[in-house]
Amino acid sequence: MEKTHNIVLITGGTGFIAVHTIVKCLTAGYLVRTSLRNMTRQDEVKKMVLQAGVPENLLTHLTFVKGDLTVAKDWEIALKNVTYVIHIASPTPTTRPKDGHAMVKMAIDGVWNVFSAAKKAHVKRIVMTSASGAVLSGHKNHPEKFTEQEWTNLDGAIDAYQRSKTRAEQEAFKFALDNDMELVTILPTTVMGPILGPDFSHSQMIIKNILEGKSKHLIKLSFDIVDVRDVAQAHVLALTQENIAGERFLITSGDHLSFKQVAHLLKDEFKAQAPYISTKEVPDWIAIMASWFIVQLRMPVKLLGQNTACSNEKARKMLGLTPLSAKTALLATAHSMFDLNIIQNNQSKG
């Protein structure tokens, strides 16, 4: 394959987006080196890559390296002979430190450590995963669709996760500008799509809880959904696309659904397998009170009463991305969870 001499370093190789990005890079003909905090998970990553349909012979193009965001020396070794970097690793709502300030610091430290090593290695371009949360958070009065021109309001009432993504992306652009480096950022909305192994992100946990009937009362929140395969493809397209250095790209299907609509879609599709799905909504004030005791609610309740719809026009025009529908992404998530026996529906009703 023509691109096999180019090594792409993908940080955080066990993550949901990262594994799908590894798949896209391998099938595009790249040599892939991916970082792991725990090197014992190499076989797990390989299994997920094969689960996605990658031919077994391409596993020879996949190698692993130790990489901890907080350890600078890891990245000088990881970046040796690398042509491109896809920086995905960052603390998430499921891996976050209890201290929000520590979460922000870890994300920023990761940028500085990875980017400093990339500068020494003279990489051609860095593509970094940010999030729509770095655009839309803290804007209570914003009726229009959000675009890449906007940034999260750091003075608003925002969660530590959105703060960490915003600050890390800002630091990344500052570093790239100061050091004359090419940087492109990818900002996915709520990411769904096929799960390849037992580990998955906070977004897919929403689907698991709905299917298992654990989300008995849904909060009144709507959000854009995107398929992880489109997110991964956007990263790969951004590696070599000309005239996009310095750009941000929101990645979304363009479909904007509420939790209630998601629950109805799943209920229609999985009546037999998931008999306990609830479509009942709860008033905002109850959701806010519940968030005092339920950690998982603390991030979404900060978006109650706010528009969160995003535009995909720029990604369509400049990257040539034609995204899958939200329904496709959601059903792929659910079907893969049933296929992997992740869904437990042995509860007694009520």
Rank of each mutant, 00 (worst) to 15 (best):
N6I: 01
T14N: 12
V19K: 09
G29W: 00
L31D: 11
T40D: 14
Q51H: 15
V54Q: 11
E76I: 10
N81A: 08
T83Q: 11
Y84T: 00
I88G: 03
P91I: 03
H101I: 00
H101T: 00
A102W: 08
G110Y: 05
A117I: 05
A117N: 06
A117C: 04
V127A: 06
T129A: 11
F146W: 12
T152K: 00
L154C: 05
T166I: 00
A168L: 02
Q170D: 01
E171R: 13
A172M: 09
K174R: 15
D178Y: 10
L187I: 06
M192W: 10
L196Y: 09
L196N: 07
G197C: 10
N209A: 14
N209Q: 15
N209F: 11
L211I: 00
E212Y: 01
F223I: 02
V228C: 04
D230K: 13
A234E: 09
E247V: 08
T252N: 11
G254P: 03
L257E: 05
Q273N: 01
E281G: 04
A287T: 07
A290H: 03
S291W: 04
F293L: 13
I294Q: 10
P300G: 06
V301I: 14
N307K: 04
A309K: 15
P323S: 05
K327C: 05
S336Y: 00
Q347A: 12
Q347N: 11
K349M: 13
